[in-house]
Amino acid sequence: MTKSELIETISARQSQLSSKDVELAVKTILEHMSQALAVGERIEIRGFGSFSLHYREPRRGRNPKTGDTVELTGKYVPHFKPGKELRERVNLGLQAGL
């Protein structure tokens, strides 16, 4: 499912808002989540999961084209930990043969 399919599905599930409004809402939610992570804030959605940042230590890497050594600085990467309900439902899918 892509973002536009998610927007269509949500539109079909509710009657008050136009699909244009749903599109704006979905984009606003995703931008809000990205902004939070960009300033190092966690995201916690009960039953879905949590997003946080994990630190990657500085390391010496290589340019795959030239083989030159490059110093890579430490950085943060986004990390997602699925919540209980999501973990259980995904497993129900497996048991149902999906």
């Binding site: 499912m1 998610l6 599905t9 949500i10 599930r13 509710q14 809402a25 979905v26 939610i29 959605i45 039953g47 879905f48 309900e85 999501l86 439902r89 995904v90 129900l92 899918g93 999906l98």
Partner: peptide, 11 residues
């Protein structure tokens, strides 16, 4: 709905 539809799809 945003989070529920993502869960349903993954399920």
């Amino acid at each position: 709905l945003f989070f529920e539809e993502i869960r349903a799809c993954l399920e």
